[in-house]
Design a protein around this nucleic acid. Structure first.
Lengths: 229, 229
DNA sequence: GTCTATATGGAGATAGAC
DNA sequence: GTCTATCTCCATATAGAC
C-alpha cells in the first residue's frame, strides 16, 4: 500500500486548478464564479475552498505554476544568447508566448497595481516569484558585459524587469489583431532601450548627457534604496 | 415662486456625493457599501440610486467635479508661467495637491487600467474628461515654443499627459511619509524630461541621437495614429 | 419629481454531516 | 478528505408613499 503514485487529492487539486484556468480564461477573473469553477471540475464548491483558501489563491497558484514551468526555457535562452538584445528579446518574448493562452487570467494579476493587494506583482505575497524572476534579468545584465556609469548599472536589472512589466501590462489590454501593437511597442522600445544604454555608456566622454544621467542616477538611488522592487 | 435658488434635489445630490467621498476616503472604494453611503448622507439607499445609477457613477461624478473645479487654477498656471518646466510643475503639482484629500478615492480610478472598464482613465466613458485634460498639456507645449523633430513634437502633449498619469499612479500607492518618494520622483523625472527634450532638439546636429530618436518617432506614429490616448 | 421600505438574486465563504 | 446545505453580505431593483 506504500505506493508512490500521485495521491488522489493532488489529482483533485490539479483538476480544480485546470477548471479555474479554463473558466477564468473564458469569462475573465471577476465574472467567473466559484460555483462555475467547481461545476467545471466536477466537485462541490466546498471542495474548491478546501484546496484553495480563496478565489485569489487560484490565481496565485497559476502564477507559481507559470514561473516553475517557464524557468527551464528562460535558462536555455540566457545560455544560448550572445547579446543583451537577444537575451531580452528571448526572455520577454517567451513570457508573452507562454501567457498567450491565459491572457485574460494574467489581467487578474496586472489588474492590481496596488502593492498592498496580494495579487499585485509588487506585493509582499508575490515577492518570492518576483525575486526569482528578477534573477533572470540579473543574469542577462551580468553576462552581457555592459559599459555603464556606476550610478546606473546596479539598478539596470530592476529597470529591465519593470520594463517587462510595462510591456505585459500593455499586452494584456491590447485588443489589436494578434496583439500587433504590442509587437510594435516591444520592437521599437527594445531598440530604444539598447540605444539609451549605449549612449549612457558614453557619458564620460559626452558631457552633453550629464543633465539626463545625473538626475537619473540620483533618482534610482533614492527610490530603489528603500524599496522592494 | 420663480426663485432661482438651488433646488432641493440638487442639495440632496450634493449631500450624497459628499457622503460617498467621505466613506470612500475612509474605507476605500471596494469596501465602501451603498448602505453606508446612504446612511452617512441621511437618506435611504434608494435615494442614492435615484441620483446615481450605480456605485461607479459616484466616482465618475467626483472625477467630473474635480475636472471642473481645477480648471481655473490650471488656466491661471498656464498664463503666469514662462517655461515648459514651470507649466508642467504647476499643472501636475496642482493635481496632486487637489487630489490629496481624496487619495484613496483616486485609486478607484487608477485601479482600473483596463481601457474597457468605464472607470479607467483610458476608457471611452472618461474620454471627455481626458480630452479636456489633454488640452492643458497642448497649451503647455504650444506656448513654450520648443525645438523638436517633427516626428515627435505632435505627440508631446499626449506623452506628457501619460507621464502625469504615471506620476499620479505612483502617488496613489506611495506609502512613504508625506509621499516624499513621489516628490523625489516628480522632481528628478521632470528634470530628465526636460533634458531629454533639449537633447532631442539637437537631433539635426547630433547624429549620435539618431538610434534613439528614429525608433521613437516610428513608434509614436504607429501607436498613436489609431489609438484614443 | 423625490424618496422610503423592502425585495431579489448572486457572490464568497463555512459548519458540520458523511 | 469531500461535499451539502446554509449563512452573510452586497449591489441593485421595485413598489408605491408623499
Amino acid at each position: 500500500m506504500a505506493r508512490r503514485a500521485i495521491p488522489k487529492s493532488e489529482e483533485t487539486r490539479r483538476r480544480i486548478l485546470a477548471a479555474a484556468l479554463k473558466v477564468f480564461g473564458e469569462r475573465g477573473f471577476e465574472a467567473a464564479t466559484m460555483r462555475e469553477i467547481a461545476a467545471e471540475a466536477g466537485v462541490a464548491v466546498g471542495a474548491a475552498y478546501y484546496y484553495f483558501d480563496a478565489k485569489d489563491a487560484l490565481v496565485m497558484a497559476f502564477y507559481e505554476q507559470a514561473q516553475e514551468e517557464m524557468a527551464p526555457a528562460l535558462d536555455a535562452i540566457l545560455k544560448r544568447s550572445k547579446t543583451l538584445e537577444q537575451r531580452l528579446h528571448g526572455i520577454i518574448g517567451q513570457k508573452l508566448e507562454y501567457f498567450a493562452p491565459n491572457r485574460t487570467l494574467v489581467s487578474a494579476l496586472t489588474g492590481h497595481i496596488d502593492p498592498a493587494h496580494p495579487l499585485s506583482p509588487f506585493s509582499r505575497a508575490t515577492a518570492p516569484i518576483r525575486d526569482r524572476d528578477l534573477g533572470f534579468f540579473e543574469r542577462a545584465v551580468a553576462e552581457s558585459q555592459l559599459r555603464l556609469p556606476a550610478t546606473i548599472l546596479p539598478f539596470l536589472p530592476r529597470l529591465l524587469w519593470l520594463y517587462q512589466m510595462g510591456l505585459v501590462l500593455f499586452w494584456v489590454y491590447d485588443r489589436s489583431p494578434k496583439q500587433e501593437r504590442t509587437e510594435m511597442l516591444f520592437e521599437k522600445t527594445l531598440k530604444m532601450m539598447l540605444a539609451a544604454i549605449k549612449l549612457a555608456g558614453l557619458a564620460p566622454i559626452k558631457p552633453l548627457l550629464k543633465p539626463l544621467l545625473k538626475p537619473a542616477g540620483e533618482l534610482l538611488r533614492a527610490i530603489y534604496d528603500e524599496a522592494a522592487c
